[in-house]
Nucleic acid binder design. Structure first.
Length: 273
DNA sequence: AGTAAACTCCGGAAGC
DNA sequence: TGCTTCCGGAGTTTAC
């Protein structure tokens, strides 16, 4: 599942490959993966330098000079890569953009099609469609901001997963952050005391920063097959149902929270009374 | 109004 | 082997 660290890794990769380059041709585009805007708009990205490549939360985007951009929703299985045009085209490849003066191309692949992409225009300081309506970046959010976010009567995990309050956490890093902060996912956010809120924010920043250093958890193998390994081995609870907690040796439990599987140490993360 | 749950998209994986 | 079931990011709908 691509979350913020995976999006950051992909963004850096795209930046190395695409910044200041231009697309020359649309080789292929499956139109029904377009979330915002119209297929026609794709043409306007041709023969114009890409001036900015970044991400918002878990969504990478790229922009050309007039403020227009393409934002990618990776969903569960979305992947972005830049490769030689002669590279065999994998199944479920929904977008191929040929680079000018090069035999390379950008590809978007998404087996389950929960992902897609959208076009937007950045106007002044307003955040564009597809990148708007998102909460602050977890790595930038301040302690007072996070206190406000947590001041609502909602299960803390559901809150962390809701992109409009904080942008970039998905199921894996939400569970890992809650474990490291010693907080049960069902705890109403407004029940957390100041100490817990600050511990949670620190845990989030630590987990995400470390995961970025490891280039994410799941999807990076195809980008850097010879890379430094990934965050998989650093997960303490996610996917570890039935195994003994590293800290207290009590078996990790799996439960449903906000409709998602959640992995919890019942000892380190005591349920709210 | 704010929250929560159900439903939708889809195909790979797991289970039988 | 071949079927059925499970799973989920995020948007939408429905119900408190």
């Amino acid at each position: 599942m691509p979350e913020l660290p995976e999006a950051e890794t992909i963004t850096r990769h795209l930046r190395r490959e695409l910044l200041n380059k231009r697309f020359a041709r649309v080789i292929h585009c499956r139109r029904d993966v377009i979330r915002h805007g119209h297929y026609r708009e794709l043409r306007s990205f041709l023969n114009t330098p890409i001036t900015r490549i970044d991400r918002r939360g878990k969504r990478p985007f790229l922009e050309i000079a007039d403020g227009r951009g393409i934002v990618f929703f990776l969903g569960m299985t979305g992947r972005l890569s830049v490769c030689d045009s002669t590279t065999a085209v994998e199944n479920h490849t929904h977008l191929r953009l040929q680079l000018g003066d090069s035999d390379r191309e950008l590809r978007f692949n998404d087996a389950r099609r929960f992902g897609g992409f959208g076009f937007y225009t950045r106007r002044n300081e307003c955040e564009p469609v597809g990148i708007d309506g998102l909460g602050p970046e977890p790595l930038d959010v301040t302690a007072p901001q996070f206190r406000d976010i947590c001041a609502r009567d909602r299960q803390i995990k559901a809150l962390l997963l809701d992109q409009k309050y904080i942008a970039g956490l998905g199921n894996i890093y939400a569970d890992e952050s809650l474990f490291r902060a010693g907080i049960h996912p069902l705890t109403p956010a407004s029940n957390l005391d100041a100490k817990q809120v600050s511990r949670l924010l620190r845990a989030i920043k630590r987990v995400l920063t470390e995961a970025i250093e490891y280039e994410g958890t799941t999807i990076i193998n195809y980008l850097h097959p010879d890379g430094p390994g990934n965050f998989q081995t650093r997960l303490r609870v996610y996917g570890h149902e039935g195994e003994n907690c590293r800290r207290c040796k009590v078996p990790i439990e799996r439960m449903q929270v906000a409709g998602r599987s959640s992995f919890v140490c019942p000892m380190c993360q005591p349920p709210a009374a």
